[in-house]
Nucleic acid binder design. Structure first.
Length: 957
DNA sequence: CTGCCTGACTCTCCTTTGGCGTTT
DNA sequence: AAAACGCCTTTGGAGAGTCAGGCA
C-alpha cells in the first residue's frame, strides 16, 4: 500500500527528477530512465539484467556537476520532500477510508454478536443512576474496556506476522518501483494484506485472523458497536525524505551490499527471517521492453572477490541478487520488529465520558491507558535486543479519526520528546526551517479538522499542551535548539540576550535558561524606525560588530576603522538595546505652521506616532507640489526605505503639514487632480482622434496607390473593380469626434488644410480595385524593401495601436492589410519611391472625380513616376495633381517646398514629427512632441522612422 | 545505534536618504 | 535655464538551516 502511494507521489512530481543517462554497452535497447537517480541498470544480454546499487560515494564522484560535497542535489531534496508530503496525504486518506468503513452497520452488528455478554454487561452497568461517583464510573469504564481489549487480543483475534503497513526508506521504495515491471506487480504483493471494502474486514473478522492493522481497525469498529465514542488512531508511515541510515553503510562493504541486494530482490517478506536465502533467478517480466534476467555464477564470483560490478565492466549474464553465505560471519542484520509485540501503526482511543478524556488502547498487545507504549523510537534505557532493528515504524504524524470522519493531530500525546524532536521534524520553525513543511502540515490538518469545536476538543488541547510542558528538559543538544521552554546561551541569536539570567539548570556544564526570559535587542537606529528612542543614560545590553549594508555605511565604517587603527581597536561595534530601555519618540511640535525637518529636509514617519503634534499627514502623491505652490511650509514624509544596489532609497508618501493648512491643501490638491484628469482625458481623445485620422489617410493613400498601380500595370481603371473599404463608426464615437472641435481641443483641425473633422469624412466610401494577384508569402519579403511596405506597416500600426476604439469596425470587403492587393511592381522588386506613389495617389484622387478618358493618361504619368527612384525629385508630378480645393493644394505645395529646402536626413526625428503627422498636409510643424513607445527596439525605431518619412512625403504631396 | 561535529551548500533576513537624462 | 519628473534596477553578507559523513 505504501508502495503504491509512493508511486503516485513520484509520478506526480516526475519533472523534478534529473534524468540520468545510462550506459548500455553493446545494446540496441532503449535506455531505461531512472527516475530516482539511484540505480544503474545495465543490460548485459537481452535476457539478463544487472542491477547495481551505487554507493553514496560513487554517486558523489560521478555527479560532481550536481553538487560537490552535499549528497543530494537541491532538486532531489525537493523531490523527496514532495514525495513525503504526497505520501503522507495518501496514507491519511487511506486511514480515513478505513475509518469510514468501520462505521459499516453490518460489520458492527457482526462484531457485537461476537462479544461475550459478560463483557458487554460490564459496560452496561456503568450509569449515573447506578454509580453516582464520577471517578468510580471512570475506573469501571476503563476496566471494562480493558477486559474487552484483552479478550480481543488474547482470545479472539490472532495477528499475522505480515501484511501490516511498515515504513520504508525512500531508497527501498525507489528500488521496488524500479524493479516492479508494472503496476500489477507493485500492487499485488504477497506481503500486503488487501482490504478492499468493509466486506474484506468482515472476512478477516470471521477468519479471526489478519494483520495487526486489521486487528486494530476491527477493534475500533467493535468499540463503536458498543456505543463508545471511539477513534481510529493512525501513525502515518510515510516515506521519509531524508536519506536512510542504510545508505551510509551501503558503499563498498560486501555485506552491506549483499543486504541491499536482498532488499532488491523484493521476494522475501518484510518480516520473514531470510538467513537461508540463496541466490535466485529472477525472471523479470518485461520491464518496459526490457529483457529478462537470470542469475549466474559469474556474478557470485565477483561478489566473493569483493568486486563490485560496475558500469562498463563487461559481465554478461549476471544477476547477482545477494551474496551467498560467506566465510565470515555476517554482521547482525536489521530485524523486522515483531508485529505482535512492537508498537502498532493503528490503534484505538475510546472516550471516557466520566473522565472526559481519551484513553488509548493497543488491541494487539492488549494494553490500555498507556500513551507511552506507542512510540517506536528505541529509548536509551530499554536494552531489549542487541540486534539492530529495522526502522519500520517511525512516529511523526499521529492522527485520531473519529466516527464522523473528522480527525485531530494527537502526535503530542504519543511521541516521546515531542517538543524536543518530533515537532521539529514535523516542520521545524514556521518561519524558515522545514521549508514550509509546518505550514503544509497545518493545512493538511485543517482539512480534516471539524469545523466546529466540541468541549472535549478544548479539554484535549489543554491536555496536549500540558504534555508538552511536562515533558521535561531535553537530553540532547539538538533538543534544546528552538525548544519552546528552554534555551542555551550558545543558541542565542546575535541580537538576543537572556534577561534576567536565571539559571534553570545545567546541560553539560552550560547553563539552561527559560525561553521566556530571552529578549531581542535592536540598535538605537532600529528603535527609531519603530518610533522609539533610547532612554537617557541607558547602557547597551550587548555590543556587536557593526554590519555595513549600504555603501555609505561601509565607507563610514572604513573611516571609523582607520581611526580605530590609529587608536586601539580595529572593529567597529555598535550597542544593542532592549525595548524596555526605550521610550516612545516624541517629535518636536509644529509651531506657527512650521514643520520640523531632519537633516535630509524631510520628516521621519515610520509609524503614525511619529507625527508631530499639530500636524497632519496627507499621503497623496504630488501633494507636495500643491503645498509648495500655495506657499505652505511642509515636509515630505518618509515612511520606509527601499533597497537597491546596496543603496537605501527613502519611500516618500505624501507630506506632513500643519493641521490648519490641511483643508486648503487637500482642496487644492483635489482640484488640481480633477484638472489633470480632465487634461489626460482630453489628451487621450486627441490621440484617439489622431490615430483615426491617420488610419483613414493611410487607407486613402493605399487606395490611390492601388488604383495607380493597377492603371500602370493593366491600363484598366481602378474604379472598375468592385471591392471597397468601408469604415463605420457607431454613435458614441461619432459624437466624440463631433464634439472635439467644440471643446477647442482640436482647433487646428478647423483651419484650412485640415480635413476629416467629422465622422462623415471618416465613413466615406472608398472603392478599391479587386485584386488580381495572390501574393505568396516568400514574395512578401521583397516588399519589405520598398516604401510600399512601409505604408502598409504604418497602417497596421495604426490599427493595432494600443487604444481600441469602441464601436469601430472595419467592414471589409478586402483584406485591408493584406499584401494580396499590392501591385506587381512592388513585388517584383522595382524600387518605387513614396513620392511616386503619392503622386499616383493624387492622380487617382483626381481620377475618382474625372471621367474614364482621363484614366489612361494618368496611368501613363504614374508609370513614369514609378521609374523615379530618388526620394527628392517631385517636380514632374506637381503638374499632374490638379486639386479642386485650392487651399489644400496651396498648403501641400508649401509643405513640399519647405521640405525640399533642406536635406531629408536633417529632418527632426520621427517621433517628434509624429504628433503633427496627421495634419501635416495642412499645418506647419507645430513642435509638439510625442514620445516613442517605451517597448520599441532600435530596429523598430528605425523602421518607424522610415515609415514616418515615407508617410510625410506622401502626405506632403 | 545515537548524538555531536564538520563541511558544503542553500536560504532568509537585514539593510535604512541617488544619479542621470528628459520633460516641463 | 532651472526645476521637476521618471526611469534605472532587485544588493550582498551574516547567520541559520539542511544534509551527509565521520567519529566517539
Amino acid at each position: 500500500m505504501s508502495t503504491g502511494d509512493a508511486q503516485d507521489a513520484n509520478s506526480s512530481s516526475e519533472e523534478d527528477f534529473d534524468w540520468e543517462e545510462v550506459d548500455v554497452p553493446g545494446q540496441q535497447e532503449p535506455e531505461l530512465p531512472q527516475p530516482y537517480g539511484e540505480l544503474e541498470v545495465q543490460l548485459e544480454a537481452p535476457k539478463n539484467i544487472e542491477i547495481t546499487l551505487p554507493s553514496a560515494r560513487a554517486k558523489k564522484g560521478e555527479g560532481s556537476k550536481r553538487q560537490a560535497g552535499t549528497g543530494i542535489s537541491h532538486a532531489e531534496r525537493m523531490t523527496r520532500v514532495t514525495c513525503h508530503k504526497i505520501h503522507t496525504v495518501c496514507m491519511l486518506a487511506n486511514a480515513r477510508v478505513r475509518n469510514k468503513w468501520l462505521n459499516d452497520e453490518t460489520l458492527q452488528a457482526r462484531l457485537l454478536s461476537l462479544v461475550p455478554m459478560s463483557l458487554q454487561d460490564n459496560l452496561a452497568i456503568i450509569h449515573k443512576s447506578r454509580v453516582p461517583e464520577r471517578a468510580k464510573r471512570g475506573r469501571m469504564f476503563e476496566s471494562a474496556v480493558g477486559r474487552i481489549a484483552t479478550w480481543w487480543a488474547e482470545t479472539y483475534f490472532s495477528v499475522d506476522r505480515t501484511g501490516h503497513i511498515v515504513n520504508r526508506t525512500y531508497e527501498d521504495v525507489a528500488r521496488e518501483m524500479a524493479e516492479a515491471g508494472n503496476d500489477e506487480e507493485l500492487y499485488n504483493r504477497d506481503d500486503m494484506e488487501m482490504i478492499r471494502s468493509p466486506k474484506s474486514l468482515m472476512k478477516h473478522l470471521l477468519m479471526r485472523r489478519g494483520s495487526r492493522d486489521t486487528s486494530s481497525q476491527l477493534f475500533t469498529a467493535l468499540c463503536r458497536a458498543l456505543d463508545i465514542p471511539t477513534r481510529l488512531v493512525v501513525s502515518l508511515q510515510s516515506v521519509p525524505w531524508k536519506t536512510s541510515s542504510d545508505k551510509k553503510k551501503a558503499p563498498k562493504k560486501p555485506s552491506a551490499k549483499g543486504k541491499s541486494k536482498e532488499k532488491a530482490t523484493n521476494i522475501e517478506d518484510e518480516s520473514e527471517d531470510d538467513e537461508d536465502m540463496e541466490p535466485v533467478d529472477i525472471p523479470i517480466p518485461d520491464i518496459k521492453g526490457k529483457g529478462k534476467a537470470k542469475a549466474t555464477d559469474e556474478d557470485e564470483d565477483a561478489m566473493k572477490n569483493n568486486i563490485k560490478p560496475r558500469k562498463g565492466m563487461s559481465k554478461p549474464h549476471v544477476v547477482k541478487l545477494r551474496k551467498s553465505k560467506s566465510q565470515q560471519p555476517r554482521p547482525p542484520k536489521p530485524q523486522a520488529s515483531d508485529p505482535t509485540t512492537s508498537p502498532p501503526v493503528f490503534w484505538t482511543e475510546v472516550f471516557s465520558r466520566a473522565d472526559s478524556m481519551w484513553i488509548a488502547i493497543d488491541p494487539i498487545r492488549g494494553i490500555i491507558g498507556k500513551r507511552q507504549v506507542f512510540d517506536p523510537t528505541p529509548s536509551s534505557t530499554s536494552g531489549q535486543s542487541k540486534l539492530p532493528r529495522r526502522r519500520d515504524n517511525i512516529m511523526l504524524y499521529v492522527i485520531a479519526l473519529e466516527e464522523d470522519g473528522y480527525g485531530r493531530d494527537v502526535t503530542a500525546r504519543y511521541a516521546r520528546d515531542y517538543t524536543a524532536k518530533v515537532a521539529k521534524v514535523q516542520g521545524a520553525r514556521a518561519s524558515s526551517g522545514g521549508r514550509g513543511r509546518r505550514e503544509w502540515w497545518e493545512r493538511v490538518i485543517q482539512v480534516i479538522t471539524r469545523p466546529y469545536r466540541l468541549q472535549r476538543d478544548d479539554l484535549e488541547d489543554d491536555e496536549l499542551r500540558n504534555h508538552q510542558l511536562t515533558e521535561g528538559m531535553p537530553t540532547t543538544l539538538a533538543g534544546f535548539k528552538d525548544h519552546p521552554l528552554y534555551v542555551l546561551s550558545r543558541h542565542l541569536k546575535r541580537d538576543e540576550v537572556v534577561d534576567p539570567p536565571v539559571e534553570l539548570g545545567k546541560f553539560r556544564g552550560d547553563p539552561v535558561y527559560a525561553r521566556s526570559s530571552v529578549v531581542s535587542l535592536k540598535t538605537a537606529e532600529n528603535w527609531m524606525r519603530q518610533g522609539r528612542v533610547i532612554r537617557e543614560g541607558c547602557q547597551p545590553m550587548k555590543m556587536v560588530k557593526q554590519r555595513a549594508m549600504t555603501i555609505a555605511k561601509q565607507r563610514e565604517i572604513e573611516v571609523a576603522m582607520e581611526r580605530g587603527h590609529n587608536g586601539e581597536e580595529g572593529e567597529v561595534l555598535q550597542g544593542l538595546y532592549a525595548r524596555n530601555q526605550t521610550d516612545l519618540y516624541k517629535p518636536p511640535p509644529i509651531e506657527n505652521g512650521k514643520v520640523p525637518k531632519n537633516d535630509f529636509g524631510n520628516i521621519d514617519l515610520y509609524v503614525p506616532s511619529m507625527l508631530p503634534p499639530g500636524g497632519v499627514h496627507i499621503p497623496f502623491k504630488g501633494v507636495a507640489k500643491i503645498a509648495r505652490k500655495l506657499g505652505f511650509d511642509f515636509a515630505e514624509a518618509v515612511t520606509g526605505f527601499e533597497f537597491r544596489k546596496r543603496r537605501a532609497v527613502p519611500l516618500i508618501e505624501g507630506i506632513v503639514v500643519s493641521a490648519e493648512n490641511e483643508a486648503v491643501i487637500v482642496e487644492a490638491f483635489l482640484a488640481a487632480e480633477g484638472d489633470a484628469e480632465e487634461k489626460a482625458k482630453a489628451k487621450r481623445l486627441d490621440q484617439v482622434h489622431k490615430r483615426w485620422v491617420r488610419l483613414v489617410q493611410g487607407l486613402r493613400i493605399r487606395q490611390r496607390l492601388q488604383a495607380q498601380y493597377v492603371d500602370a500595370d493593366n491600363g484598366i481603371g481602378g474604379e472598375s473593380a468592385g471591392t471597397s473599404i468601408q469604415v463605420t463608426i457607431d454613435q458614441p464615437q461619432v459624437r466624440n469626434l463631433q464634439r472635439l472641435p467644440e471643446r477647442g481641443v482640436y482647433k487646428g483641425m478647423k483651419q484650412p488644410g485640415g480635413f476629416l473633422i467629422t465622422a462623415d469624412d471618416v465613413v466615406e466610401q472608398h472603392h478599391l480595385p479587386k485584386s488580381r494577384h495572390r501574393a505568396d508569402p516568400v514574395q512578401v519579403d521583397h516588399v519589405q524593401e520598398t516604401n510600399g511596405r512601409a505604408i502598409l506597416m504604418s497602417e497596421s500600426e495604426v490599427v493595432s495601436s494600443e487604444e481600441p476604439v469602441p464601436g469601430v469596425q472595419l467592414e471589409d470587403t478586402v483584406d485591408v492589410m493584406g499584401v494580396d492587393d499590392l501591385p506587381n511592381e512592388s513585388r517584383s522588386g522595382v524600387p518605387i519611391t513614396m513620392q511616386a506613389l503619392a503622386e499616383a495617389a493624387h492622380a487617382h484622387k483626381d481620377i475618382s472625380h474625372a471621367g474614364p478618358e482621363e484614366l489612361s493618361s494618368r496611368a501613363a504619368v504614374a508609370t513614369v513616376a514609378s521609374g523615379v527612384s530618388t526620394p527628392g525629385s517631385s517636380a514632374p508630378t506637381k503638374k499632374v495633381s490638379t486639386r479642386t480645393a485650392r487651399g489644400k493644394r496651396k498648403r501641400a505645395s508649401e509643405g513640399s517646398d519647405a521640405e525640399s529646402d533642406k536635406p531629408k536626413e536633417d529632418e527632426p526625428t520621427p517621433r517628434k514629427r509624429r504628433g503633427e503627422a496627421a495634419p501635416a498636409a495642412a499645418t506647419p510643424p507645430s513642435g509638439r512632441v510625442l514620445r516613442p513607445r517605451a517597448s520599441k527596439t532600435a530596429s523598430q525605431l528605425k523602421e518607424g522612422k522610415g515609415i514616418e518619412l515615407a508617410y510625410r512625403r506622401a502626405v506632403a504631396e
